[in-house]
Amino acid sequence: MKILVCIKQVPDAEAPIRIGADGRSFAVTGGAWRMNRFDEFAVEEALQIREAFPGTVVEALSVGPARAAAVLRRALSLGADEAIHILREGEEEPLPGEVAALIAAYVRDRGYDLILAGVMAEDDMQAQTGPMLAERLGLPCATAVVAETIPPNGMTIRVERELEGGLREALEMPLPALLSLQSGINRPRYPALSHVLRARTQPMMTVRAGDLPAPPRRERVVLLFLPAPAAKTLFLTGTPAEKAERLAELFREKALL
């Protein structure tokens, strides 16, 4: 089986974020970028499928500027066999429609049996790239997948999608198919030393975005802004002990303690 995992480099959730001078991009203080957490589940799921189906090849793909190579190295160090970098210059983040079109242009006719993606990126939170890619490739697709099983013949995949209120919906689809994975579907592993060493030197394939057919741009980011702080929020000040004391007083005043 041949599996493609789509991964994205996103800012570390706790890193301080600034809005760029153009008002439409953001900058991460200290360059704290990491693999999108949802995509870590996708990498892990692919590796588990490879364990169940010997001979399976797992390839990781990312669209992004030069720095995005770091998440592909990470995928290799986790155990992916190959890495493909669709190099797209520019700090302004591409929108999902553009990313899906670029990936589709590369992936088409390469014979992947299964394409996995995270349910969304932690940064833009649009949850579009996976289902858009499936549509472009004409593949059946399920999003927010919390469980999957492939019967031994490897012809179909049975998935459970997460619905509201804890409900799940079960579906069966023929392969090839695309799944976007919800967090919690597995426990992502830590890199093994042998993989880490290999990942350092293993070449990756780089494809320039400009060499692929120009993707459509059907949306335009107007502006990013910091949400105004809520006027009602009381930020406690002082030493940690003073804050703790003040908070306990507040609990007392509100008759909560």
């Binding site: 800012p11 959730a13 974020i17 809005i19 953001f26 932690e122 940064d123 833009d124 939170m125 980011v221 107007v222 502006l223 990013l224 802004f225 910091l226 949400p227």
Partner: peptide, 9 residues
Amino acid sequence: ILKGKLQME
């Protein structure tokens, strides 16, 4: 976006 740290228009 970014877990609610920023708003995007």
